[in-house]
Design a protein around this nucleic acid. Structure first.
Length: 335
DNA sequence: ACCTGTCAAGTCTGG
DNA sequence: CCAGACTTGACAGGT
């Protein structure tokens, strides 16, 4: 089983490479020259894309093939007051360059629209804004020329006092969203509301892959055994249209899981600086043989630093004779 | 150079 | 019904 590790948004190794520089609406509004302000936003976006490319090159150098891009590439992109602004023509080259690098090096990239995207909401305006935000993320991927292996991972959302009803509302509202957006969605279990089992049932219903977060599952486990859920989670990936089309080829998209460690006893849901290897080892040994490959997204304060430390831990395991073979700086083989 | 409050967005809790 | 917590990197405005 090939295991590839990835990390989120920014590097602690590469200096001065923020991909999420921004401007607040408050300061944009104060500008006398609106057009000039828009050009400034476009320059910020260009820098963000340039730094994303630098991060990807840094990833390539490290041997890291999995990466979650930041949602903040274009500052204020979905803000109500800037709906007449089309930043894409000015950024076409920057997007193309990022996309070309990703394709050339077969990297797996994704986005994770944040918790303001809630398809279970009972409020129509919140649903509208959520779809708008999803559309923004899809446009970014399209501008990069990435195929449907580049996905947007979201949570189910709030429960509003009736989780069952909210799950049904999620499903109903999901069906109204245009296909090019739905085709790019994965669903992740969250740390206090929708458990792995509940998220999985919804993912099966709307036919999207499920991303399992094993830390969320530890703090919000529900009462289902992972041994029973895992085959179903794998199935959501094998039913993914791209994978159906390319079954048994090297370009199938492996399932993905998220890993993080509790920040402290008092804040068990928070993310620690680094990731403890033991729970991951336990999980990998449980699922070894069930899939030829798996991608593991590291969610830790130390970002790529946490990934590198985890790889060191794997090297130590290999040295002590454990059935692990480190392939390069970001991937290994589970023997 | 460094510190602190604020930020576009949603939901939940508790008063 | 409303304020504050949640969570986050970075801005903005101050010293």
């Amino acid at each position: 089983m090939i295991v590839r590790l990835g990390y989120v948004a920014m590097s602690v190794e590469l200096e001065d490479a923020s991909p999420s520089k921004t401007m607040t609406m408050a300061s944009f509004s104060k500008l006398s020259d609106r057009e000039g302000g828009l050009r400034r936003l476009e320059r910020l976006a260009e820098q963000n894309l340039h730094n994303t490319l630098r991060l990807l090159k840094h990833n390539r150098y490290m041997g890291v093939q999995v990466y979650r891009m930041t949602s903040k590439l274009i500052p204020l992109a979905t803000h109500e007051e800037l709906q007449d602004w089309d930043p894409y023509p000015a950024l076409a080259n920057a997007f193309a360059e990022v996309g070309a690098f990703i394709r050339e090096h077969n990297m797996r990239v994704s986005f994770h629209p944040d918790h303001f995207t809630v398809l279970s909401t009972p409020r129509p305006e919140v649903l509208r804004n959520s779809v708008k935000d999803l559309n923004y993320h899809v446009r970014l991927l399209e501008a990069m020329g990435l195929d449907e292996r580049a996905l947007n991972n979201i949570h189910v959302g709030g429960s509003y006092g009736d989780k069952e009803k909210s799950a049904l509302r999620f499903i109903d509202q999901f069906q109204t969203i245009e296909k090019r957006i739905c085709d790019r969605i994965t669903l992740e279990n969250d740390d206090k509301t929708f458990t792995a089992k509940e998220t999985l049932s919804i993912a099966e219903e709307v036919k999207v892959p499920m991303v399992l977060d094993i830390h969320h599952h530890a703090v919000n486990p529900g009462n289902e055994l992972m041994e029973e859920l895992w085959p179903r989670i794998l199935r959501t990936w094998s039913l993914f249209p791209w994978n159906v089309k390319h079954a048994n080829t090297p370009i199938v998209l492996p399932p993905k899981i998220h890993v993080s460690s509790p920040k402290s006893l008092s804040d068990p849901r928070g993310h620690a600086e680094y990731v403890e290897i033991e729970p991951l080892l336990k999980f990998l040994s449980n699922i070894a043989g069930s899939t030829p490959a798996i991608d593991v997204m590291i969610e830790a304060k130390k970002k790529d630093g946490a990934l590198l430390k985890l790889m060191d831990d794997f090297r130590a395991l290999e040295a002590s004779g454990e059935p692990v073979r480190v392939i390069d700086g970001g991937s290994l083989e589970w023997l």
